[in-house]
Simulated assay, not measured.
Amino acid sequence: MIIGLIGKILKKEPTIIQLNVNGVIYEVFVSLNCSSKIISDDVKLEITEIIREDAHSLYGFLDSNEKKLFDTVIKINGVGPKVALAICSTFTPTSFSQIITNHDINMLKRVPGIGPKGASRILVELSGFIVDGSNQDEATNINLEASMALESLGFKKDLVTTVLKSCTSATTSELVREALRKLQK
């Protein structure tokens, strides 16, 4: 299985690159976000290889979070590599994580190939999708933990989500306390 490639770009299109790796040329599908970040001819890509009856396809990523996003959404029933790549082209991993946290169906429906049913399925199956890394992701974790705590106390998910959007606390326990005060009103 191919998990990474380091080579020189021979040809670059918006969603496909041809990569020369020691004389072997690979066709690698990339998202628009990834393609726009490639500024040099020499590139190192993390690869997801998908083997089907009729094709062996390589999908390349500069960002490990984008690869995680692709690998996660492709496991959902009805989401193939083209739709997964469209999701990666439309959203950054951080913005996608925020969309999942906020249960924003309308944003998901903007992706080519995703309708209302598909968007709903993605939201249900990926609730809790977390991106590795930045402080914004830490805030997402805190929000998720607070949401789960409040739901376990019997509050409805929609109400919890609405109240948490108006809260400003920085830790899970403070966020739960602040949300409980607002929920009591």
Rank of each mutant, 00 (worst) to 15 (best):
K75G: 01
N102L: 13
D158F: 07
T101N: 14
I114S: 07
N135Q: 15
F96C: 09
G115M: 03
C34P: 04
K37M: 12
G118C: 09
T90K: 14
E66G: 09
T172K: 15
Q136R: 14
L62S: 10
I99W: 00
D137M: 07
E13I: 00
P93A: 04
I105C: 04
T168L: 06
K82R: 15
S147P: 01
D42P: 02
I51A: 08
I25S: 10
E53G: 14
T162M: 10
R177F: 10
T90W: 03
I100N: 05
D137Q: 14
S166V: 00
F96Y: 08
P116C: 05
P81Y: 04
D71W: 03
K82L: 09
V83D: 04
N102S: 14
V24G: 05
N135R: 13
K12N: 10
K12R: 13
F129S: 06
G118P: 08
T162G: 14
L108Q: 01
F129E: 00
L159Y: 05
N33E: 11
S97V: 01
G118K: 12
K157H: 11
V21Q: 01
T161N: 13
G4S: 15
S97M: 14
F29G: 03
L69H: 03
P81S: 14
T15I: 08
K82I: 13
R181C: 09
T172S: 12
D137L: 00
L108H: 04
G118Y: 12
E49T: 13
H103F: 13
F155E: 10
Q184A: 14
S64D: 04
S147V: 01
Q184D: 09
L153I: 04
I142H: 12
S40C: 03
